[in-house]
């Protein structure tokens, strides 16, 4: 059965490149492998074995954002919800570094507290998807047979379902609190993660050391968790970083569709709030936008670099 390419429709119109690599590889393999000549050798950029300074800048930013967000209640930051700590639509001043919004609330404080929600949603949803999808993919890739067909068929169906609409429906009907949004986005992240985990498992479980382990009489469980899993884990983790970026954007997307988290602020919600005052005070929208952009960029970049780093080509061994 020909397989449909994976996609990451979570972020509308802006899927990440890494998932495309998989899509491309699968489609190409599907079509060409049987033909003589096969696929032209992988000629990506020169494989860099070092992560490079830019990678550490990205990691530094992520650590900084996470630390500030985690410590926000104890740091000397204005209360995000307090009205009138400054004037209406103040620009960048000494008292309020990044200005104030229409109710005179501190934009910097709101952005910092927005980070708390956005980051928790991003990491929690992907962590959930990783456990469920990772396990399903691992088993599907290793066991093959009917189990694989059922799991992959299910993943295919989930993927052909318009993702944004699914999230919108789940959240509209279940309610707008944070863990329900995490649940909705977590469910959506299962299918792509399953596909990736399976693809990776397929590749690794055909290697010689697995054969060796089997010849030595290792049980399936041992082979799966001690031989295959450690190899699959790192590529999956690097893709998970990109997944976190996608989920953070998806949460913002939901906020823009008016199904954001109730009674709390996330980056997406802050951008939406700022949209109405673009003429008088563009900074209200652009400060949280910038925080979101740099975080998504850093996650994408770090994920991409790690993926390249752990992508061990046979030729290099």
């Amino acid at each position: 059965m020909p397989e449909r390419p994976a996609d990451s429709a979570l972020s509308e119109g802006l899927p990440d490149a890494a998932v495309f690599h998989e899509a491309q590889a699968e489609v190409y393999a599907d079509a060409v492998v049987a033909a003589p000549g096969g696929v032209a050798g992988e000629v990506d950029d020169v494989v860099k074995r070092r992560l490079g300074p830019a990678f550490w800048v990205a990691v530094g930013w992520l650590v900084l954002v996470t630390a500030v967000a985690a410590l926000a209640p104890v740091l000397p930051i204005e209360e995000p919800e307090r009205i009138g700590v400054g004037g209406r639509y103040e620009g960048f001043t000494g008292d309020h570094w990044l200005g104030t919004d229409k109710l005179g609330r501190d934009v910097f404080a709101r952005t910092v507290f927005g980070a708390r929600v956005s980051l928790v949603v991003g990491f929690a949803a992907v962590a959930g998807g990783l456990v469920v999808g990772g396990l399903l993919g691992l088993l599907a890739g290793y066991r093959r047979g009917w189990f694989e067909r059922v799991v992959m068929g299910f993943a295919d169906v989930l993927l052909s379902f318009p993702a944004v609409i699914l999230a919108l429906a789940i959240v509209t009907f279940l309610g707008h609190d944070m863990w329900k949004i995490v649940l909705a986005l977590g469910i959506l992240s299962i299918a792509p993660i399953t596909r990736l985990a399976r693809a990776n498992t397929l590749q690794w479980s055909q290697r010689e050391f697995v054969l060796a382990a089997r010849t030595l009489g290792a049980k399936d469980r041992r082979i799966l968790f001690r031989e295959v899993l450690p190899n699959v884990l790192m590529p999956m983790a690097s893709l998970a970083l990109i997944g976190v970026a996608i989920v953070i954007v998806a949460e913002g997307t939901l906020a823009f569709l008016n199904v954001g988290i109730e009674n709390s602020i996330s980056w997406g919600k802050l951008v939406l709030e700022g949209k109405d005052s673009l003429e008088q005070a563009p900074h209200v929208a652009f400060v949280p936008s910038a925080a979101m952009f740099f975080t998504v960029l850093a996650l994408n970049f770090a994920g991409d670099r790690l993926r390249a780093h752990f992508d061990v080509k046979e030729g290099l061994l």
Partner: peptide, 21 residues
């Protein structure tokens, strides 16, 4: 790489601000 990291809604707001406002 940078463009890919901009969420659609932020891009929309940026364009509204630049080309519209």
């Amino acid at each position: 790489f940078g463009v890919i990291a901009v969420p659609v809604f932020i891009l929309a707001i940026l364009f509204i601000f630049l080309f519209g406002v």
